[in-house]
Design a protein around this nucleic acid. Sequence first.
RNA 1: GUGGGUGUAGCUCAGCCGGUAGAGCACUUGGUUGUGGUCCAAGAAGUCGCGGGUUCAAGUCCCGUCACUCACCCCA
Length: 438
Amino acid sequence: MSEQRVVRPTPISGFPEWTPQVRAVEQRWLDHIRAGFESFGFASVETPSVESLDVLMAKGETSQEVYTLHRLQSDAKDDSDARLGLHFDLTVPFARYVAQHFNELTFPFKRYQTQRVWRGERPQEGRFREFTQCDIDVINVDSVPLHFDAELPRIVHQVLTGLDLPAWTLNVNNRKVLQGFYEGLGVKDPVAVIRAVDKLHKIGDEGVRGILLGDGLTGEQADACLALARIRGADAAERVAALGVTSPLLTEGLDELTFVLDELADLPEGSVVADLSIARGLDYYTGTVYEASFDDDPGYGSICAGGRYENLAGQFIRRRLPGVGISIGLTRIFAKLVAEGRIEEGRACPTDVMVVVPGAERRADALRTGALLRERGFNTEVFHSTAKVGKQIQYAAKKGIPFVWFPPFEDGGEHEVKDMGSGEQASADPATWQGAAG
RNA sequence: GUGGGUGUAGCUCAGCCGGUAGAGCACUUGGUUGUGGUCCAAGAAGUCGCGGGUUCAAGUCCCGUCACUCACCCCA
C-alpha cells in the first residue's frame, strides 16, 4: 500500500558480524578450540547471558561497564528485571555456577565455556562491546594444584598454534612476586604500583617512574620497581633475587613461577615467557597471571589472559573454592586477521552439490535426486525455481558451490554432473557418484 | 567518561567560490531455442544522518543533536 519507510542499516559500533564466507572460518576456529579443550578433558558448560547484578559485582567495586536489562514496555513500577545484567566475562558466572551446583560436580572441576560477553566500553580497533571468549578454568575445593597453572598455558599453546596466527607470546607472572617484592621494599600501596607498572610497555620507564614518585615512593624504591618490571625470560627468579629484596611472599611467588615455567620447558623457546611487568590490573587474581599478545603489535591488546584466583566462588558459598583459568579472546584475534586480510575466506554456503531443475514438470525428479545425494552424505540443494539453466548455474558459481548436478532432461536420459572448478561435465549415477574424490 | 575526525545509492567514494544529485562495484533485465565466471546494452535504487538557522536558493555556510571513527582510559 503505502511506501515503507526504510530504517537505515547502520553498523552498531563494537558489535561485529561477518559474511558467511568469514563466519565459516570462525566456525572452524570454534570447532578447533573446542576439540583442543576437550583433548585435555575439560567439560563444556554454558551459563545464561545474564546474571544478577549482585553476582556480577561480587568481586568488588571496580567493575566493568555492565549492560543492565529492562523491558521496553515495562511500566514504571515494574523493576523485576532491574537486578539483571549481561555478563562481562565468563569467570564470574562460572564461579557462581560452581557454588550453585556444588554437590553435583566432581572436583577438581574442569570446564570450558565459549560464549559471547558484553562490555559497555567505547569500542575501538580490537575492542568490542560484544565478543566471544573461550574460557577454561579449574576450580577445586580448598586448593588447586599448581600443576594446573602450567597446564592451562599448554592448552592455550596447543590451541593457538593450530590456528596459524601471527607470532604471539604468552607472558606469565605471579602476583605474589609483585606483592611480596613491594612489601619487602616497604611500599605502602602495592596495588597502585602494580597499576603503574602495568603501563610500562605503553609509557616507558620515565613515565612509570613519574607516576611512582607521584605516589610517594622514593627514587630508590621506584628504581627497584622498574628493575623488577624489566625482568623477563628464563632466569627471572635468579635476577629477582639479585635485586636484594626479600619477603616470604616473594619467595613463595618465585617458587610458583619457577615451577610453572619448568613444567612448560618443553614448549618451543619463547612461546611462554616469564615477564615480571605483567600485572593484570586490579582484578581478582592472586597468584599466577597470564597475558598473551601479538609480538609485532603488542599495543593491539591482550589476546588471551587469565590467572589464579583464591576465592572467587567462595563469595557464593561457605566453602573455600580457589581456581585458575585462562581465556582466549577469540573475537579480538579473529577480527584482526580479518581486517588484515589474513583469513582465507571459506565458501559462501556449505552446499556440495546443486541440483538443476530443468523445468516445472521435472521438479519432482530433481527433488528425488537431491534427496538421494543428501542421504549419501553430500550437502545438496535443489534449485529453487525453474529459471533458465544459465541462471541456475550462475547462482551456483556465485555461491561457490563446487558441483552442479543435471538430472535427466527427458525420460530415460542420463544424469550429468559438472565440476564448477574445471568446467568439465560428465555423466554420473547419483547412487554411486563419489564427489570430489571420484 | 574526556578530546579530535567523519556522516551523499546496499558498499567505496566524487560533488569547485551555495543554484533542487553523480561514478565504480553490487543488484535486476536483455544479448532467442538445455550450461556460469568475460564483454555489451538497458534498468532500478538517495528524506545528501536528524533537527533548527542564514539565504531568493543549502549536500554545500552556521548551531544543535545522534551515529560512526581515532586517541586517552580500560581491557579479551
